[in-house]
Amino acid sequence: MQASLDEIISRYKAGSRESLLPLLQDIQIEFGYLNEEAILRVGQHIKLPSSKVYGIATFYDQFRFVQKGKFHFKVCRGTSCHMHGSLSILREVERVLNLKEGQTSRDGRFSLEAVSCMGACGSAPVMNVNGEFKTAIAIQDIAQIINFYRSTI
């Protein structure tokens, strides 16, 4: 069962600036992203202008303002993966999915994100789809990997 926005907000003390980031994080865990309503409501609760809440949220990489796709691709852009050609991997994924990094496809099936080191430097370059790691990927494999997910819907 999904907790409602009210319920999450009520876990935190009103007017406490310290709670702002944990509160936004909780909302994002529950709903996958921060929508306009969430930002407005958090602003009222913490007693901060919603413009400020939005400003702070955009400062941090973690917060998203669009829903993730059903399949969320994370391509590692850490140093080790970069040396093993992760930029070309990212471009190829972008090309095959027809998305740019940070976007979600219009049908909500795919989203793409470039992240820094995922801790698998030993098997670079790596990519992660919904938590499942693909290690030591080659450019030629990408179309196949993506087609696999395309066909599973």
Binding site: S16, R17, E18, S19, L20, L21, I56, F59
Partner: peptide, 8 residues
């Protein structure tokens, strides 16, 4: 700053 709930 980040712990205080501000921009880092």
């Amino acid at each position: 700053n980040s712990i205080e709930g501000k921009r880092g």
